[in-house]
Design a protein around this nucleic acid. Sequence first.
RNA 1: CGGGGCGUGGCUCAGUUUGGUAGAGCACUGCGUUCGGGACGCAGGGGUCGGAGGUUCGAAUCCUCUCGCCCCGACCA
Length: 574
Amino acid sequence: MRFSKMFLPTLKDAPSDAEVISHRLMVRAGMIRKVASGIYNYLPLGLRVIRKVENIVREEMNRAGAQEVSMPMVIPSELWQESGRWDVYGKELLRIKDRHQRGFCLGPTHEEVITDMVRREIRSYRELPINLYQIQTKFRDEIRPRFGLMRGREFIMKDAYSFHATEEDAEKEYQNMYDTYCRIFERCGLKFRAVEAETGPIGGRFSHEFMVLAATGEDSIASCSKCNYAANVERAETKIEGLGVKGQEEKRPLEKISTPGMKTVDEVSKFLKTIPQKLIKTLIYNSDKGVVAALVRGDYEINETKLKRTLDAEWLNLADEETVRKITNAPSGFAGPVGLPTKIFADYSIQTVVNAVTGANEADAHLVNVNPDLNFTVSSFGDLRMVVAGDLCPRCTDGKLEIFRGIEVGHVFKLGTKYSEAMNASFLNEKGEEKPLIMGCYGIGIGRTAAASIEQNHDEHGILWPMALAPFQVHLIPVNVKDKATLDAAENIYTNLLNAGLDVLMDDRDERAGIKFNDADIIGIPIRLTIGNKTLKENRVELKMRNRQEASLVKLDDVAKRVRIEARQFWNIS
RNA sequence: CGGGGCGUGGCUCAGUUUGGUAGAGCACUGCGUUCGGGACGCAGGGGUCGGAGGUUCGAAUCCUCUCGCCCCGACCA
């Protein structure tokens, strides 16, 4: 491709709304442009990268035995009503009406459609298992789209769905997909970890997320320093006995203390000259299971996902001011477990607190010397808190948890029969019994994977593409196109490299060298070849790898060979 | 959904407090010089100041409404 002919508008400045590095660089490198909040145009250079990711995904999925299909983006509401998700999916689901006032939605995911597709055709266990996937544009009406392709509303996703006759077989495919995902992200040259994850509104029993490690990631993951345990903090557990020994302190009588205006753990512990570990936080929640109170030690945070699971609740929200007043007879900030009319769910951590401080359920007052069982009754103890760095690993003997940031690029779920039962998708087994299909579901964010690669591979000048995702492999720069010898040599090399099967971008623009070099740095093509009359006199050209500082000189006759060697080495190291 | 902010040429922004008929840098066009790390000179083109309504002799500037975008928060007791 010739730069002069390519629609490749690079920018000196990034638009002021671009915050994270991948977003800024994608815009500056002329890869994407915003059309509306969370909705983007892919320009030629951006699309090339997207296609690279897609093709890696496609090759590996095919290799793993999956088959590509394509489903509609506009989905009739009946299918979503059948699965029950029309009412529970929330505002992320963009609902639209056609001219006949029939309900549709823009597909944020395709369990319903695929289940419908498969139930119409699959009759027998002999036709199983089957794994179908598509690479397609999805739409989720995110509350707050941001970070460019990282959290868009419209985005390209690979989603695969597998159908099985037995649990065993479904688990085998889950492992197959897990391994396939590892291969995919390795080929993309990403540093990633597979972590145990929550299942969210997609449903299902357990799952793994594939996280690209990057400081700008929106997720936190906990990872063991010793063994391979890793989990999204939404789900991460710790050893219960890791909480430390219960104090030997003698239990003292309950006492009420005036604490005017002291609401937060910080304020209260400072005011009472104690430490957060001596406090018990009481949080009032509203849920479909009613209003409940959740207790956790003052220095920890409640993990709402865990609480939700404990309650077996469909939804859960921190109670509003009005509810808090009704339940506690006090403004928020002074809730405590003593005398609360609601059910009380407590994190194990409060078992370590003796003579605790809690809210008094009265404005501007706290209780001290509160002791569970003595002063209040806990309905149930459980693991309800967020893990913190340094917590003991739940799986091995002496590992400690570390917390990292990650970008979720892939997710594998075991769905079970949630959709097949709701939508009556069944088959006949060997015994002639009708059984619901057992399903699995496997997603990869294509655009997000490209963005994650930039988050991981860039410097102060621009992108550093790994060879596998690079829009071109070679960036050819004739320094001065008005110099005939330079241009002739460049054209020659260009043709040779193309014939050698390489993707080459030749910057044949009549621009100053500085502009070309700077654009080359922003775009980030791995191999840069510079042709100028200085080195041409010695029949040499300059070869520089984008991810290395030093350049080297290569004889004209050896260029194609050297480039191929460099490209291959690059594969091996990245 | 709550709080805050911003919409002025393709991009980054000034001008708004104190109304007076629209600017800078970059980008773009032409000519000349320059030419291996974002050159310089000269001459140009391009803006319904997000939109609608109002106040006024006069509105980018003041008022009302509206649309769009961005940031923070929505795990706080």
